[in-house]
Design a protein around this nucleic acid. Structure first.
Length: 258
DNA sequence: AGCCAGATGTCCT
DNA sequence: GGACATCTGGCTA
């Protein structure tokens, strides 16, 4: 299920409006057999949704401040879920940016200019005055680049306003405020199998896109170890669209000092 | 690339 | 009572 979700769209409609992301990075968690899964030690109040029917959202709160959303994907009684790690905002970008504003200055290395969002060019090239740079820096501090709007599981939830309230939400009902939709690109079982088999040898060349950002060719799927996981760290159950800039950075798990 | 703080829920002893 | 978490953002080197 995890690689099949790549390219699909997660949309959330609230009183503030609609925000939707095309999923670019996911991780699979098997329940009973996976020590990295929240369900590994059995059902608790927190993980109960994972033991229910498939197609529902399992949302959990972590690190005292972040939410992450999973898609339950096995029949009731068998816990299993796919963590949605990153996506590209395809609708409601200004609302997503408002929700994410103030959290992070623009990433100066990603080749985009934060100021371009409001028509102001941010540049360190010759001819730019110190005042220009100061104004640009102040603006950048309050702006999140398009790439970073849903780059990471907690950022994705923030951009979509997914919180505890969405735990247990039906992702498949057409009328559901939080729902999953087919993407622009549908992957066949063969594509998925080949994508998995090609992991590690596929070139990270990027995906050609049209003016609307839609991919024109079948994307290459890469796989690797899951992020922030110690148990079963060797399992390559993280899947992402090769070369997509919205895929989150890999981080090794760091245990906190005692 | 690496280190660290932040905030609180969850689960284990 | 305590360890630590499917993380992010700020900072240092």
């Amino acid at each position: 299920v995890a690689p099949a979700l790549l390219g699909c769209v997660l949309a959330h409609e609230t009183a503030d409006g609609l925000v939707a992301v095309e999923l670019t990075e996911v991780e699979a968690y098997s329940g009973a057999t996976d020590p990295a899964s929240h369900a590994y030690r059995g059902m608790t109040g927190r993980n109960a949704v994972m033991f229910g029917p498939p197609g529902y959202a399992y949302v959990y709160f972590t690190y005292g401040m972040h939410f992450c959303v999973n898609v339950v994907c096995q029949p009731a009684g068998t816990a299993s879920a796919v963590l949605l790690r990153a996506g590209r905002v395809v609708a409601g970008e200004s609302l997503a940016r408002r929700r994410r504003a103030g959290r992070r200055a623009a990433d100066a290395q990603d080749g985009t200019t934060a100021g371009a969002l409001d028509g102001t060019l941010v540049s360190a090239r010759d001819g730019t005055t110190a005042d220009d740079l100061e104004v640009a820096a102040r603006g950048a501090r309050d702006v999140v680049t398009a790439r970073d709007l849903a780059r990471g599981p907690a950022r994705l939830c923030q951009a979509l306003a997914v919180t505890r309230a969405q735990n247990g939400a039906d992702l498949c009902a057409p009328a559901s405020p939080l729902r999953l939709l087919p993407g622009h690109v549908s992957l066949s079982a063969d594509d998925i199998a080949q994508g998995s088999a090609a992991a590690g040898i596929s070139a990270e060349g990027g995906i050609p896109a049209d003016d609307a950002g839609r991919t024109q060719v079948k994307p290459v799927i890469s796989t690797g170890p899951r992020v922030g996981v110690t148990a079963a760290a060797e399992v390559a159950w993280r899947f992402w669209l090769a070369g997509d800039p919205t895929v989150s950075a890999y981080r090794l798990h760091k245990r906190r000092a005692r």
